[in-house]
């Protein structure tokens, strides 16, 4: 009730003259996309949640139900191991992207000069190449008979290194897949930053490195948080990197979900896995929103 009053007050003060016809037009504009999202997005997510409590009946058909059996099945060490691995891979991907991406954003933003825009474009273009093709590209490069091993053998130093099917290859693929989403928000926050701060920091602290950690890094926290979100979310749900660069020993939750829907034919279990993934992301989002609020309050 009080919220509605607040709404009305805000409306009255901000919108000076809003005629009824105008409001009707915006309502007409809002309805089709809103209905579309409800029908195709909200309701389909609801079906996933509902089916996760269901089971597969005697003729192999997925039916709704009210049991927690699927979730109990997920408590099995086999699944827990995969869930843990997914979290580790996603965290590793995020940390590596941050450590590698920050210097790049920094260099372009503060030392790009007149080439700044060109450098950003140069950085962004590869990420519009199909994700699948990019993962395929790495898999051919890193294969036992691939180009990298061929070059290594040519140097005569080694008989070749096994890259594929290792956790390192999967995480590298994930980093390569979305590091741009780390660089861009950091770049944007560095751009917005008042460089006089760095000057002041230099007077205050001894070394450029100290200045960097005491001044620049805190001033770009919002950008880093944005990057962490944009890299972590897709990494946690990915299955292509683990499929093409890894194998069963490096499977992530995405691979399990994909298996349940295409090989295992246990859609309710796959739904439960999907719900677990969504819950994990929800928890992450809550922490993220809290952190951004804190950053906003401080700056």
């Amino acid at each position: 009730m009080s919220l509605q009053v607040e709404d009305a007050l805000v409306d009255a003060t901000t919108e000076k003259r809003r005629s009824p016809t105008r409001t009707r037009l915006w309502g007409v504009l809002l309805a089709p996309p809103a209905i579309w999202m409800i029908v195709f997005f909200i309701s389909s997510i609801a079906i996933v949640v509902m089916l996760s409590f269901g089971h597969v009946n005697d003729v192999g058909k997925a039916v709704f139900g009210f049991s927690l059996d699927n979730y109990k099945a997920l408590a099995d060490p086999v699944y827990l191991k995969v869930l843990l691995r997914s979290a580790m891979f996603a965290i590793a991907t995020t940390v590596i992207s941050l450590v590698l991406g920050y210097p790049v954003a920094y260099t372009i933003a503060l030392h790009g000069g007149k080439y700044k825009n060109a450098l950003v474009a140069f950085l962004v273009i590869p990420f519009f190449a199909s994700y699948l093709i990019r993962m395929y590209a790495w898999s051919t490069l890193l294969a036992d008979e691939g180009l990298v091993n061929q070059l290594l053998r040519d140097t005569g130093l080694t008989e070749g290194i096994r890259f594929l099917n290792t956790p390192g290859a999967v995480v590298a693929g994930l980093v390569y897949g979305s590091i741009v989403f780390m660089v861009l928000p950091i770049y944007a926050s560095l751009e917005r930053m008042d460089t006089a701060l760095i000057e002041a920091g230099k007077d205050l602290y001894h070394s450029p490195l100290q200045t960097f950690f005491a001044v620049t890094v805190p001033a770009t926290r919002a950008g880093m948080l944005g990057g962490v979100l944009l890299v972590f979310l897709p990494a946690l749900g990915d299955f292509v990197s683990a499929q093409l660069l890894g194998g069963p020993s490096t499977y992530m939750i995405g691979n399990l979900i994909q298996q349940q829907f295409f090989e295992g034919h246990d859609q309710p279990l796959g739904s439960a896995l999907t719900v677990v993934l969504m819950l994990a992301l929800l928890v992450f989002m809550v922490f993220y929103l809290r952190a951004t609020q804190r950053v906003n309050r401080e700056t």
């Binding site: 079906i47 979310l233 897709p234 995405g254 993934l277 989002m285």
Partner: peptide
């Protein structure tokens, strides 16, 4: 902010 695999599973079902 939803991973594509979630959207994919949801659409399929």
């Amino acid at each position: 902010v939803t991973p594509e695999i979630v959207t994919g599973v949801a659409a399929l079902l």
